[in-house]
Design a protein around this nucleic acid. Structure first.
Length: 276
DNA sequence: AGAGACAGCCACATTACATCA
DNA sequence: GATGATGTAATGTGGCTGTCT
């Protein structure tokens, strides 16, 4: 399928939802959210059951991420509280698995907490994260904790890195897709122009050499098929079934059937497929 | 079995900081 | 050194699924 050819991102299976009818039930459910434009990807939880435990401790965990730092601490929203809980759990896991984690990156934000310090990952950290991302664009909790330990980061930082990385990948793919669609549009426009010219030439030929039927009195002449009166752009030959597309053809094929708005055969020149 | 609460994860938008030209 | 652009870590928000009660 062209959809797969075009929209596959990488081995992680990220896909841009530009096509209609794609995706499974889970994606469909996710895409039906209020935002509408949200693009989705399969949830790792469908494959990896959560193994994390929430522990009510860790308010003392330092760092901009753990506890949300100066900003999220002040949050009174439900989601903010929720996130704080998540981070508390993360921080606790980090403290239980790697005491050195806080001595590492987290120890960098050792000021009064009034400003948000931004960690710059080292080349080694970035490289390892990239490697892991190439393997899987999502992490299960165990992998997250292990990777955080390996990188001397907090699990929350690893999680955030993966989130941001997925967003960057998606953005890049969107740009690629936009460029592709632009080229498709240009190609189609050019093809349309060519066909219009061709049609004009054929019409000129037809009138230059009138057929016997054309010479007959107008009253006796059989009316031209409806599709002959249509602009050329509305006529399409379906390469699969070799039938003429367009509303008239659809009406002729199934005269008793109610006519939906788009029953004609749509030929996609890029996929070389027809929706028959 | 169905409902509600909750935890965990996600996408997405945005902010804020670090770096570079 | 100041400044704007850019990259990206971090934060906030809302939605979904799975689990538990």
């Amino acid at each position: 399928m062209a959809q797969e050819d075009v929209h596959h991102l990488d081995d992680a299976g990220l896909a841009l939802g530009l096509s209609l009818g794609g995706g499974g039930a889970y994606d469909a459910a996710r895409q039906s959210t209020a935002s509408g434009s949200r693009l989705s990807m399969p949830s790792p939880r469908a494959l990896e059951p959560s193994l994390t435990l929430s522990m009510p401790d860790e308010a003392t965990a330092t760092g901009s991420g753990g506890g949300g730092g100066a900003h999220s601490v002040s949050s009174l929203s439900v989601a903010g509280v929720k996130r704080e809980r998540v981070e508390e759990a993360d921080g606790e896991r980090a403290s239980s698995t790697a005491a050195a984690a806080r001595a590492g990156a987290a120890a960098e934000d050792d000021d009064d907490g009034s400003t948000r310090k931004k960690l710059r990952l080292t080349k080694e950290q970035s490289a390892l994260l990239e490697d892991r991302f190439k393997e899987h664009s999502t992490l299960n909790p165990k992998q997250k904790v292990a990777l955080a330990k390996q990188l001397n980061l907090r699990p929350r930082q690893v999680e955030v890195w993966f989130q941001n990385r997925r967003a960057r990948t998606k953005l890049k793919q969107t740009e690629v897709d936009c460029e592709f669609l632009k080229r498709c549009c240009e190609s189609l426009t050019e093809e349309n122009r060519r066909l219009q010219r061709e049609l004009q030439e054929l019409r000129a030929l037809k009138f230059a050499a009138p057929s016997p039927a054309a010479a007959a009195p107008p009253s006796a002449a059989a009316p031209a098929p409806f599709y002959m009166q249509l602009p050329a752009a509305t006529l399409t030959i379906c390469p699969s079934c070799e039938r003429l597309g367009g509303p008239a053809a659809a009406a002729k094929a199934e005269p008793d059937r109610p006519k939906p708005a788009a029953t004609h055969h749509f030929f996609n020149p890029f996929t070389h497929s027809a929706a028959c």
